[in-house]
Amino acid sequence: MNIVVLVKQVPDSGAERNLTSDDNTVDRGSANNVINEMDEYAIEEALKIKEAHGGEVTILTMGPDRATESIRKALSMGPDAAVHVVDDALAGSCAVATSKVLAAALGTLNADLILCGAESTDGRVQVLPHMLAERLGVAALTGARKLTVDGASLTAERQTEEGYEVVSAATPAVVSVWDTINEPRYPSFKGIMAAKKKPVRTLSLADLGVSADEVGFAGATSAVVEHSKRPPRSAGTKITDEGTAGTQLVEYLVTEKFV
């Protein structure tokens, strides 16, 4: 099975993250850039499918030059090759444009299965897998907590707030996964050493036949107009128990829609 895993480089969600003041995009220069955590689960799932059914795993990344670091890290877990879409004109691309570029890149890859994380820790909009499937004209099995492959048939347990749904589709398809699906392996020393020898193909917008005005700031269908830092946390409400604390706590939870 020919599997492509979408990997996005994001600022480390464990560290302080900022938007730049000039164009309101993520300040990648000051951030420690890492593989989007959910994508590691997609890589692990791809490797498990390859181990069970054979085939090849390719990493597909759209991002600036420095995304190469994340591509090598992803390759050190075991995938076979990578494709890096890199073009200055891509800066500021919205999800719609990103899906257009990735769909064009996937057009060159002949994938049976496209795996990705259900969301990225920077954007968190969860729309890309659906947009991509729509553009490719294939099924989207999103938010999977379990995936079973049987020949050309895919069955996923789709995580919902109440429980899960069982959905199935024939390949080719896009499957996005949550972190409940597996436990990603560590890279290995051999993997790290092998990663630098694995082929990484770079593609520009021209290579993909996508024009610069359809992507980036120029082609964005949405834009961040302004941003401000979250105000510092204010002191919480202290309830002193004078016999009614329980009631007050329940009222608070109801008001805040926690229950």
Binding site: R185, Y186, S188, F189, K190
Partner: peptide
Amino acid sequence: GEVGLLGMHLTGYGCAGASAVA
């Protein structure tokens, strides 16, 4: 052993063959 730490600076026989610095 899973990540290849054991005998990582040796070559062959399942060892990673990493550098002395690593």
